[in-house]
Amino acid sequence: MLLSIKNLHASINGKEILKGINLEVNEGEVHAIMGPNGTGKSTLASVIAGREVFDVTEGEIKYKGKNLFKLSVEERSREGIFLGFQYPVEIPGVSITNFMRTAVNEQRKYRGLDPLPAGEFLKMMEEKKKLVEIQSNLTNRSVNEGFSGGEKKKNEIFQMAILQPTLAILDETDSGLDIDALRIVANGVNTLRTKENAFVVITHYQRLLDYIVPDYVHVLFEGKIVKSGFKELAIELEEKGYDWIKKEFE
C-alpha cells in the first residue's frame, strides 16, 4: 500500500477541519475526492504535503509504510509526494528553469545521484513542455509571475512531469480552466499514469473526471469521508448536487 490514512484529525488555530479521515491508496490507482467548498479537501492535501500551519491532533498517515509525520516537507517531496497547488505561488526573480534545475538536483542528491548534466536537463524540459503545450519562453520567466490561470495550472503539471512523483495530489487543478486547458492538464496526467504511481485528484466538479477517469470517488463532507464509490458516484453527484449528500448526512 502506498498511502494509508487512519482517523486523521487536523485543525488550524484551534479550529478542527479534519474530523477522522480514513483513506487508502494503492499504486496504479486514481482517487477523486469531491465535496462542497469548505469541507476540508485542501486541508487534507496540505496535511499530506506537510504544511506547518495545520496541527494534526489525532490519527496517522503511513506512506510507503513509513510514518509520514516524521518527514519534513522537502523529504516528503523527495520520497515522491507531489502537490499540485490550487493557487500556485508567484515567485518573482526565480525562473522556472532555475527552480526546476534546483529541485531535480536536490531530489537526485537525496537518491545518491549526481546532478543532471545541463544538456540532459534542458532536453527533458523541452520534452515536458510539449506534453503540457506550454510556450517555450515561459520557462525563462519568473515562477508563475504574471501567468494566466491556465498557465499556472499547466505549469503545475509541467513540474509534476519533470519530478515524476509516486503520489501526486492535485488540488482543484481544474478550477478556473477553460475546456482546452482542462484537456491539456488531463492529457498530461493520463500520460504520466503508470502502474507504479497514484493520483489523488481533488475537485469540486465532475467535469474533470470526464477526462481523468478515477478508480474511486470519495465525498468529503464536514471533515469526514461520508461516501465512497466508483466513477458512477461522480456522475450521480453531478446530477443530484451536494445537497443530496448534505441531507443524507444531516
Binding site: R51, V73, I91
Partner: peptide, 11 residues
C-alpha cells in the same frame, strides 16, 4: 513561497 519551493524537494 518557501512552502512551494520545499514541496518540490528543495531543502
Amino acid at each position: 513561497a518557501l512552502f512551494y519551493l520545499r514541496q518540490r524537494g528543495i531543502g
